[in-house]
């Protein structure tokens, strides 16, 4: 465990609280992609299967896993019930099947081992790397976002970005290297790069998030 990883995990945790806070404070889920949330739930459910047999291995990991699964399920529940009037299927239209299909294909081609758990783990890593695309696509269609939504996206993107120095650290200091997670994590961070740039040049300088 190193500082980058802890900061990454905390950033992930914070992003979920910001998302829930966004819905509570604006009483709306406008601007949030239901498709991306559903993809994340698939990611957590397929990656954290091991929670049933490693519960005692690390209380930290197990509790985080539970929080990620439950909070994402709760977010989806809120979006489909309390805040459903703000859902806009006309804007949230990204072809998610391609993402699930592509991640499935990569998982079957390159798992560390051919076991159900390992293939699902690999699937979850690839799916996570692209799960944000429906959300970014939606953002591009609307051309603007509420400031709190951009804080959510920043915290979510920062999580995987912070994992990159963590992987470097572990590679050099612990001899641990996870090629699947690292390649997928770099792709995931690259997908955010435009967003990070606009967040840095606009939101952090007190301006509204608007696409040029």
């Amino acid at each position: 465990m190193n500082l980058f990883r802890i900061l990454g995990d905390l950033s992930h945790l914070v992003s979920i609280f910001i998302l829930l806070q966004k819905m509570r404070s604006t009483r709306s889920c406008a601007g949030i992609s239901l498709r991306t949330q559903i993809l994340y739930l698939m990611v957590y459910c397929t990656r954290y299967l091991d929670i049933f047999w490693t519960f005692n291995a690390s209380l930290y990991n197990s509790s985080m896993k539970l929080v990620f699964i439950l909070s994402t399920a709760y977010t989806i529940y809120l979006m489909r019930t309390v805040y459903k009037t703000a859902l806009d299927p006309q804007i949230d239209t990204f072809a998610t099947y391609y993402l699930v299909g592509g991640a499935g294909l990569l998982a079957v081609l390159f798992p560390y081992k051919y076991t159900v758990y390992e293939v699902l783990w690999s699937f979850s890593i690839w799916l996570e790397s692209v799960a944000i695309l429906p959300q970014l696509f939606m953002l591009q269609r609307t051309g603007e976002a509420e400031t709190i939504t951009t804080h959510y996206l920043f915290a979510l993107g920062a999580y995987r970005a912070l994992y990159i120095p963590n992987w470097l650290y572990r590679w050099f200091l612990e001899g641990h290297f996870d090629p699947i997670a690292t390649v997928a994590g770099i792709i995931q961070t690259l997908l955010y790069s435009d967003f990070f740039y606009i967040y840095y040049t606009k939101v952090l300088k007190g301006k509204k998030f608007e696409l040029p």
Partner: peptide, 10 residues
């Protein structure tokens, strides 16, 4: 023999 990959991250 290659050591098995541990999944100890989130």
């Amino acid at each position: 023999k290659k050591e098995e990959q541990k999944h100890d991250e989130l």
